[in-house]
């Protein structure tokens, strides 16, 4: 990713707003932009979702492959999650092999889903030691106006929850069956802008902001993944505050996934 110049004016402006507890688009500190979730939007994928958060738009698609189980886990299938931010998504994203930024995106979302234990990997076994299903979750950004992390995580879990294992096409079963996803891990991201953390930073706030923290919480409020990114220092008080915010926001987003699933 090309590193854009951060104008001092932008940083000064954001800091000034922060002093009055304001944001440049009029949101309050913990307020999200308009968030929309659609499922089943990509007919070639076995599970898919589109998420729009403000002007950030991403897709997630689930595909299946047959793999040989790892020798130390002969009864288990696998999960692979990768994020691609291609130059279509914004003027600073460049072509070429995956950038460190997009690799971090994919890995943080992957950890949240994997560590929540929502996928029963034993259920993916076809023939022990020989054949198992590999679930591949591809995250694809169309428009980056900040907070790709939350958009990817939300689209990712929604796509997984609606995925169908194509047993007929692979001649492995007589009928296709749904992928069993027992939980709904949800990510909430906070970025320090003008000296204090805000929720759902947009492109401008990312550009003029400092460190960010990503929290993935499970159904029962358990923590499944954390990531601190970019240069910056934070205190334990700051962390406790955003953790509390994340607990309530995750519930709302989980409700959104459940509703989309019921409607779809």
């Amino acid at each position: 990713m090309a590193i854009p110049l951060v104008p001092k004016l932008l940083r000064a402006h954001l800091a000034e707003l922060a002093e009055n507890d304001e944001r440049h688009d009029g949101r309050s500190r913990w307020e999200a932009r308009d968030t929309e979730l659609e499922i089943g939007v990509l007919p070639r994928a076995e599970g898919s979702a589109k998420v729009r958060i403000g002007n950030t738009i991403v897709y997630a698609g689930v595909k299946f492959q047959v793999m040989t189980p790892y020798p130390d886990r002969p009864n288990q299938g696998g999960l692979m999650c990768s994020a691609e931010v291609r130059p279509v998504a914004g003027p600073n994203w460049e072509p070429g092999p995956p950038s460190p930024e997009s690799i971090e995106l994919g890995r943080v979302v992957d950890r949240g889903i994997r560590e929540s234990g929502c996928i029963d990997v034993d259920d993916l076994c076809i023939i022990p030691g020989e054949k198992a299903w590999q679930v591949i979750l591809d995250l694809f950004a169309i428009s980056d106006d900040g907070n790709l992390f939350d958009a990817f995580a939300l689209a990712g879990i929604a796509a997984m929850r609606t995925a169908i294992i194509p047993q007929k096409r692979f001649e492995i079963g007589a009928e296709d069956r749904p992928l069993i996803v027992s939980k709904t891990p949800i990510m909430c991201s906070y970025q320090k802008v003008g000296g204090r953390f805000v929720y759902d930073a947009d492109g401008k706030e990312e550009l003029g902001g400092d460190e960010r923290i990503h929290i993935t919480l499970g159904d029962d409020g358990h923590v499944h993944s954390l990531q601190k990114g970019l240069r910056g220092i934070f205190t334990d008080d700051e962390f406790s505050e955003i953790m509390e915010q994340a607990q309530s926001r995750c519930k709302d987003l989980r409700e959104m996934v459940n509703k989309a699933e019921e409607a779809g």
Partner: peptide, 17 residues
């Protein structure tokens, strides 16, 4: 100009790149 197919755009997954 860049033309690209997303990994989930085809019946069998398309390797990125």
């Amino acid at each position: 100009v860049r033309y690209n197919m997303a990994p989930f755009s085809t019946t069998d997954r398309m390797r990125p790149g």
